[in-house]
């Protein structure tokens, strides 16, 4: 399967297979007018299978979202058809308004103006907890 190369934009590569759609949603890529390609289950020597997202526009990308969903992913910045920068992703210490706390007893469930903030409490097991009620992020 061929997807055209992009001229100016970003390629999110090395996404663990299955995480592509989650990233698409959390990054708000559905809102964009430009071409966006999600390629699922691409054969990868290193990963077996991987997902790739290509965005044909030089948009700002929330690295915290990618670090939360898939810290193994890489970002390639493309300008004039050439790779100009490659970024590795790290798990962020804090997530602000990326995901919502699902605990119905949490203060964020009734106070709409509060930011939904999660902090990384266990790097090894990728555990984020709500800073208000300490409920684990799903």
């Amino acid at each position: 399967m061929n997807i055209d190369s992009i001229n100016n934009g970003i390629v999110i590569d090395h996404i663990s297979a299955g995480n592509g759609m989650k990233l698409y949603e959390l990054l708000g890529l559905a809102e964009l007018d430009c071409s966006v390609a999600i390629i699922k289950n691409v054969v990868s020597q290193k990963m077996g299978k991987k997902d790739i997202i290509k965005v044909d526009a030089d948009i700002p990308v929330d690295l915290d979202v990618i670090g939360f969903v898939d810290p193994g992913a890489t970002i390639n910045i493309i300008r004039n058809g050439s790779l100009v920068e490659k970024r590795n992703i790290e798990m962020p210490e804090r997530l602000v308004n990326v995901i919502k706390c699902r605990n119905p007893r949490c203060i964020t469930s009734c106070e709409q103006e509060l930011d939904h903030v999660f902090k990384l409490t266990d790097r090894e097991h990728k555990v984020y907890r709500c800073i208000y009620c300490e409920t684990k992020a799903n």
């Binding site: 203060i107 964020t108 106070e111 509060l114 800073i131 208000y132 300490e134």
Partner: peptide
């Protein structure tokens, strides 16, 4: 509500004691 005392402490200019948040 859980976390209400934390929100109070973040916004108050005086010390806050959590006397139970849910």
């Amino acid at each position: 509500k859980e976390g209400a005392a934390y929100v109070t402490a973040k916004n108050a200019s005086v010390p806050v004691i959590n006397a139970g948040d849910g």
